[in-house]
Amino acid sequence: MVIIGGAAIGAACAWFLTGELGAGARILVVERDPSFAHASTSHTNSCMRQQFSNPVNIRISQFARGYVRDFRAAMGGDPEVPGIAFDPLGYLYLAATEAGAAALRANNAVQRAEGAAAELLEPAALAARLPFLRTDDLRLASLGGPDEGYFDGATMIAWWRRMARARGVETLAAEAVGLALAGGRATGVRLSTGQTVAAGWVVNAAGPRAARVAAWAGFALPVEPRKRTTWVFTTPEPLGAKLPLTVDPSGVHVRQDGAGYMAGSGPAGADAAVEPDDFTEDPDLWQDHVWPILAARISAFARLRVTASWVGHYAWNRLDRNAVIGAVPGCPNLILANGFSGHGLQQAPAMGRGVAELIARGRFRSLDLSELGPARLLTGTPFAERNVI
């Protein structure tokens, strides 16, 4: 098996495949940049939530939460495997219109039916809970429970890689540049080194470059890089309570980050596709768009100091902003695990397990992910999920 891409999704697939297939499996991870300096995984805010509107996405996150909680056991009980730090600060969604409030209520009904703890708060109740927030323009809020927050995803991925290597998984620093095809199947992966690695199975875990890999098999995968910027800042005026990951009606979001804070945003204007190597920051985005929104919502943020900022890429699924997992139509041994649109790290455990089950057993066994399959791309039928940041 050849896995193209070694960041969160590729590492998850490699690890779970070793569990499904045992010691005899031959697995190669091909990674163009082993430093992962510009991987989407390296630029993530490392958060996890259950406030989705589709039961499948909720179940994916519930598995991830349990997996992180019991990480050592999930990795076989090795006493050297550490626990994964998790800060249960919750997600807070704010609605400023009646339509937004109605969506929160509908989402909440689905979440509660799936056992996800989320509380609807009227503006007065929210103001009593978090008095530093401006609430007079709001209609409703939804605050998640202790299974939402941010976690040490880097440690999780590092141990996937380490334990996979111990089970015989190999990694090659090279760029995949094409597929060898015969009889409607992938027979190998062509590399930038000029060699072709034979493959019985190929997993596309190429993140924002996933469409290029799918195109080698003649499949149009609507996944493209979209810029997302993160800022880390401190403020001299304490809020008096921990700040949940707060999603403003504008789409700007901010959360506690240790003693400081972390904010994120897409572009202020058109959210267009960019080149995979384009990580240039918009010099005016913070000053003209993000900071005014934060200061209007939390007055203490009128005075702050930005200590770091960076641009990362969402692997954006143009159809419905949700994952695509499954075999490429017309090339059954090329497996897609793409298009996470900002949810890749928190969904990586379930996706790694799902890919491993598809290859080893021919079907999803633990959690049915078939609604996220690539067939919906052919018909243009979106996966129904309203709650995407």
Rank of each mutant, 00 (worst) to 15 (best):
P283T: 03
S299T: 14
M1I: 13
R69V: 08
A117E: 14
A384H: 08
P382L: 05
A118F: 01
F71G: 01
S142R: 09
E119W: 09
A127F: 06
A99I: 10
S299W: 04
A154M: 12
A375W: 13
E175T: 15
A296R: 13
L285T: 10
R255V: 00
L358V: 03
A272I: 06
S61R: 05
P208D: 12
I58K: 04
P55E: 00
A14V: 07
M163D: 15
L121Y: 01
L367E: 12
L130H: 12
L345T: 07
A23I: 04
G184T: 02
S192Q: 12
G178W: 10
P146E: 11
P374I: 04
F52G: 02
A217Q: 05
L126W: 08
E224S: 13
A39K: 08
I3N: 04
G362R: 00
T193I: 02
Y261E: 00
G240H: 09
Q62I: 05
A315Q: 11
W316F: 15
G342V: 07
P88F: 08
F52H: 11
G145E: 06
A186F: 01
V56E: 00
A154V: 15
R105I: 11
V388Y: 09
A308T: 03
S265P: 05
R59I: 00
P208I: 02
Y91A: 09
K242R: 12
M156A: 12
R129A: 13
S40E: 13
A205C: 15
T155I: 11
A296H: 10
A39P: 10
P238A: 09
P131Q: 10
A64Y: 13
A116T: 08
S46V: 08
A25H: 02
D320M: 06
W159F: 14
D248A: 03
P374W: 03
G22C: 02
A85Q: 07
R255L: 12
L245Q: 10
N317Y: 05
A295G: 09
A158N: 10
A300H: 14
G19Q: 12
A102D: 15
R112S: 05
L21N: 04
S40F: 04
Q111Y: 03
A73P: 00
